[in-house]
């Protein structure tokens, strides 16, 4: 079997239509407000799939919903006998148009949710997902995936990776699911020629030079590892943080959650898992109102250290994927790019 393929842009919709026969299709879609979001595509003929703009949110909420019912429970009238019913269903889904940052984020979530103790809810969703990535010829305004080694193109992890070559896509199968798709719908795929290979290589080279921001994450990581981040930086950022948790919620790799039980009626209830954020005071709030973290001074410290230090120590790479979304999200102007730049601008002594 040839290594890589070409899919003509003319045929993209036709190919996606075939995928829709057995899968739910999720792709970046532009809505009437001009926002591009990963949405379920019902009708390819009336939906505006947008491959030009960055989706404002990642696909995290599909694999790890903001609010998820894990199980429901019922009890008898006296509240003595309980029955539980697991709620774990997921329609087979194709995620199309995943940028490298978002795809890398899924690979990170795989480590969090599947590596040691397999989370059955994530597992069900992940096993029923096909990931079709789209490399970035032109990174967006706040992107710095190169710095975090999560783009603009990936070497592995995707089922298929598309590269835009103008009138056609260069298609690389990655994992087995990708291979299987190409085989199933082989009428759409032509073997890539040497010229295609060259054009693709050229595109990736140019992408590396097309970043609008120079964000040197490895330098900041080094300083964090050496403990060389002055207290004033933590305090400045924490003072401006408005406690909205927007960064954590929008971040493709923030996976902290809270569990609560909700009463539906006198004899029924459900267990909910909801997104949480380490920037909330209650994240480490203790009985008596104590908190081991001084939220005034260190509210955002835990989060940045997790992204740029602890995950480097634990997994060998930062969990920030350089998507830049927290920049536009942050109310206080204290996003991770500002943090990295401020850490890096501290003088050597």
């Amino acid at each position: 079997m040839p290594e890589n393929y070409i899919l003509k842009k003319d045929h993209l919709k036709s190919f996606l239509r075939k995928l829709q026969k057995d899968h739910r299709l999720v792709a970046p879609v532009k809505n009437e407000y001009g926002d591009t979001l990963f949405s379920v595509v019902d009708s390819l003929d009336t939906t505006d799939i947008d491959l030009e703009n960055q989706a404002q949110a990642s696909v995290k909420s599909y694999l790890f919903p903001q609010q998820e019912t894990l199980f429901t429970y019922k009890t008898d009238e006296e509240g003595k006998q309980y029955t539980f019913e697991e709620q774990n269903r997921f329609e087979p889904t194709v995620f199309f148009g995943l940028r490298s940052c978002d795809l890398s984020a899924i690979l990170y979530m795989d480590v969090i949710f599947l590596k040691e103790n397999k989370d059955p809810y994530y597992q069900k969703k992940r096993e029923n997902s096909i990931l079709i990535g789209l490399g970035c010829n032109q990174p967006f305004d706040n992107c710095f995936c190169r710095s975090t080694r999560s783009g603009p193109f990936l070497e592995f992890g995707f089922d298929l990776q598309f590269t835009d070559l103008g009138d056609r896509f260069y298609v690389e199968p990655g994992r087995a699911k990708g291979e299987a798709l190409v085989k199933q719908w082989q009428q759409f795929f032509f073997p890539a020629t040497q010229d295609d290979d060259k054009a693709r290589y050229q595109a990736t080279l140019e992408a590396h030079g097309n970043f609008k921001q120079q964000v040197l994450a490895p330098v900041a990581i080094g300083r964090l590892q050496e403990g060389r981040v002055p207290e004033e930086i933590w305090q400045h950022f924490s003072a401006r943080c408005q406690d909205c948790a927007g960064c954590a919620y929008i971040c493709p790799t923030c996976t902290c959650y809270n569990m609560t039980d909700r009463t539906i009626s006198a004899t029924e209830g459900e267990r909910l898992r909801t997104w949480d954020a380490c920037t909330f005071a209650g994240f480490t709030g203790m009985a008596g109102g104590h908190n081991p973290v001084d939220m005034e001074k260190h509210r955002i410290r835990r989060r940045f250290m997790h992204k740029l230090l602890h995950d480097v120590n634990r997994h060998g790479r930062p969990s920030c994927v350089g998507c830049g979304r927290c920049v536009d999200m942050c109310f206080g102007g204290v996003d991770i790019i500002k943090f990295i730049n401020m850490v890096n601008s501290e003088s050597e002594d």
Binding site: Q242, C244, F331, G332, G333
Partner: peptide
Amino acid sequence: TVKTHPQVARRIFDAVD
């Protein structure tokens, strides 16, 4: 403002910056 109108506070912070 930071606590009751965060989006306005955001603009205030932008202006101060």
